[in-house]
């Protein structure tokens, strides 16, 4: 293909996919009036009022002053995603190793069941969970949410990391044992370091999935435990939808995952393909 055509096509595709993000980014610097004017225009006077409203937590609308918990939401997102991934790593990495190295009764079935959590519709489990959680007092708690978030993060980590462990020659581990090292030290000094790119990729991916989750927190948490994805709903107010604040909230909430993804791009691609294709 001619290089010029390539450039044109790539630009078109890039524009197509990036335009909504660019539009949202521009919206975040406009007032509701300039956003809603017809016809829309790219020329406007930029304002930071959306961001100041979000950060200060006070939104002044025509109908009065609205208290916003956006910074709390951002913090919740971080706590929930980080703790969920940490717990999943703690549980998932040793489990992945067991599934990769040992064939025990029902091992494939158990591994598959864990994976199936990933494609079971969330609503199916949410309503019964909501009832259970109310009974045992886990409703609207970080612990309860982190527990449910395992449905998102654990299968992902388990399956990607398992592929990595399977790629490590058992002879390398055997050699270390024969050298005189214990089983545990072999796991920590050989297996984990060799699977580290996969573990990092799986952790990043599941962090992003956890961050973007909406429906679990929507049903199981109230305002002070809600992540940004749910928190953004607060901008749909009685006096109208606050497009400017929504846009600013979106920009702020995608920044952490965007930064992570850009930083770890190389690992992500490597991790996904290596985990999927086992040697």
């Amino acid at each position: 293909m001619h290089p010029a055509i390539r450039v044109v096509l790539l630009t078109l595709i890039g524009l197509f996919f990036l335009f909504p993000i660019v539009w949202v980014f521009l919206m975040s610097f406009q007032t509701n009036e300039t956003i809603l004017r017809i016809p829309p225009s790219l020329v406007f006077e930029p304002t930071l009022q959306n961001y100041t409203a979000l950060i200060s937590g006070r939104l002044e609308t025509g109908a009065g002053v609205l208290e916003l918990a956006f910074m709390q939401n951002l913090w919740n997102s971080f706590v929930l995603s980080f703790c969920s991934v940490a717990l999943s790593l703690l549980l998932g990495v040793p489990a992945a190793y067991a599934f990769a190295r040992f064939k025990f009764f029902g091992s494939e079935d158990i591994a598959f069941t864990l994976l199936s959590f990933r494609f079971a519709p969330a609503l199916l489990v949410l309503l019964p969970l909501n009832l259970y959680f109310q009974d045992i007092g886990l409703n609207d708690t970080y612990i309860g949410l982190i527990w449910v978030y395992q449905l998102i993060t654990l299968p992902l980590i388990l399956w990607i990391v398992r592929g990595y462990f399977e790629d490590i020659s058992p002879d390398i581990e055997n050699a270390y044992r024969v050298d005189g090292h214990s089983w545990f030290s072999t796991f920590m000094k050989i297996s984990i370091p060799l699977a580290l790119p996969g573990i990092a990729a799986a952790a990043l991916l599941s962090f992003i999935f956890a961050w973007n989750n909406f429906v679990f927190a929507l049903i199981l948490a109230s305002a002070d435990k809600q992540p940004v994805t749910v928190g953004a709903l607060a901008f749909v107010t009685a006096s109208g939808i606050q497009y400017g604040q929504i846009a600013a909230a979106v920009v702020l909430s995608i920044l952490p995952t965007l930064a992570l993804a850009l930083y770890a791009q190389r690992y992500l691609v490597e991790g996904l393909s290596l985990g999927a294709v086992k040697g």
Binding site: S169, D171, I172, N174, A175, Y176, V178, P193
Partner: peptide
């Protein structure tokens, strides 16, 4: 033991 595939620790 010297393994046939060497089994050196790559890291």
């Amino acid at each position: 033991v010297a393994f046939q595939n060497f089994a050196l620790y790559p890291h």
